[in-house]
C-alpha cells in the first residue's frame, strides 16, 4: 500500500509530463502539404493542398446515411459540415501542415498526412 501523498506525487508528475508532451505533439508541423482523405481505412482521395488553385467542396457519405462535407482551399482543408453527433471534425477547423489528423470517429473518416504516415513525418 502506497501512501496517499506518494500517489499524489506520482500522478502529478505524470500529468506534468503528459502536459509537456501534449504541447509538443499538438504543435508538430511537417514539410509536405499532401493529405489523404481516408474512410474506414480506405484512401478515397489524395490532395496536394499547395496545388489547390481555388476553393471547392465535396461530400463523403457514410453507410448509415451520414455525411461530412470537406472544403479545400489553397494550402488548407477542413470538414465544413457534418451530421455526426459530436461535431469534433467540424470544430477541429482547418488542417494545413499540422501532424494531428482531422478525425470523425462516428463516420470513420480521417484526413491525414499522405504517403508516409504521420509517425514517419515526426521521426524525420
Amino acid at each position: 500500500m502506497l501512501k496517499t501523498r506518494t500517489w499524489i506525487i506520482i500522478i502529478a508528475a505524470a500529468a506534468v509530463v503528459l502536459a509537456a508532451l501534449t504541447a509538443v505533439t499538438l504543435n508538430l508541423k511537417r514539410d509536405s502539404a499532401v493529405v489523404e482523405v481516408v474512410q474506414d481505412g480506405t484512401v478515397i482521395r489524395q490532395i496536394d493542398l499547395n496545388a489547390v488553385a481555388r476553393e471547392y467542396s465535396f461530400d463523403v457519405f457514410w453507410r448509415d446515411g451520414g455525411v461530412n462535407t470537406v472544403t479545400v482551399r489553397p494550402g488548407r482543408i477542413c470538414v465544413s459540415h457534418a451530421d455526426c453527433p459530436d461535431l469534433v471534425c467540424v470544430n477541429r477547423g482547418w488542417l494545413s501542415t499540422e501532424v494531428t489528423p482531422i478525425v470523425c470517429m462516428p463516420h470513420r473518416l480521417v484526413i491525414r498526412a499522405a504517403g508516409a504516415t504521420e509517425l514517419d513525418a515526426v521521426s524525420e
Binding site: L18, T22, L28, V38, M105, V110, R112, L119
Partner: peptide, 17 residues
Amino acid sequence: LIAQTAGLIIYLPVLML
C-alpha cells in the same frame, strides 16, 4: 485499428492527460 491510421497515436498524450 479501425481507421488504419497509426498517426492517431499523436493524440495519445492529450487523451491520457
